[in-house]
């Protein structure tokens, strides 16, 4: 069905966020999965209009945080009570109050790393280029235009039918996206 390997998907352009939001609802209801909306600023209500499900990121953060916590406790216990036991001002070799600040900090640090890099991973980053950047119209996605992009990898994607569907959404234009990154 694809025309060539570099074909990425179809793009439809809108002049304002309200039209984009209504169009997103239609794309959502049509059952597409591999698609996205691009706006120059955050638009309230887009998550619902696009039917975006909850992210897995919190679970990644939870694992990161627990790892940090365990790492800190093990490190403090091993250093102070096993590897170099030394009694300081009559304190136990492993006193939990003394361990709390470092444990807290490492939990926060690992959670932050898990959040930041987990978000990268889920978004397919880092990447230096994207097929969308080769489109002239898409350059206005950071200033004053609003876009929906349906990728060819979507199970429902059929070039003629999908194109006709996107044209029915009432956008300014529908265009094919071809990756020209290697040109």
């Amino acid at each position: 069905m694809t025309r060539d390997d570099r074909f990425f998907g179809l793009l439809v352009e809108f002049a304002d966020p309200t039209r984009l939001e209504h169009a997103c609802e239609k794309v959502r209801d049509a059952g597409f999965e591999h698609w996205d909306a691009h706006t120059p600023f955050p638009v309230h209500g887009m998550d619902a209009a696009m039917g975006i499900k909850g992210t897995r990121l919190p679970w990644i953060v939870l694992v990161g945080g627990l790892t940090g916590m365990a790492a800190a406790l093990l490190m403090i216990w091993w250093m102070n009570a096993v590897d170099y036991p030394y009694i300081i001002s009559g304190k136990p070799l492993f006193g939990w109050p003394a361990a709390v600040p470092v444990t807290f900090e490492l939990t926060v640090l690992f959670s932050a790393f898990a959040t930041f890099f987990g978000m990268w991973g889920l978004n397919g980053m880092p990447r230096l280029s994207h097929p969308l950047f080769s489109n002239e119209r898409f350059k206005r996605a950071t200033t004053d235009r609003f876009f929906i992009v349906v990728e060819k990898t979507d199970p429902q994607f059929e070039i003629a039918k999908t194109r006709a569907f996107l044209e029915s959404l009432g956008g300014l234009a529908v265009e094919e996206i071809h990756d020209r990154a290697e040109d």
Partner: peptide, 12 residues
């Protein structure tokens, strides 16, 4: 609460 507790535990 912990900040208060830990300093006194440490100072002893």
């Amino acid at each position: 609460a912990f900040s208060q507790y830990m300093l006194y535990w440490y100072g002893n």
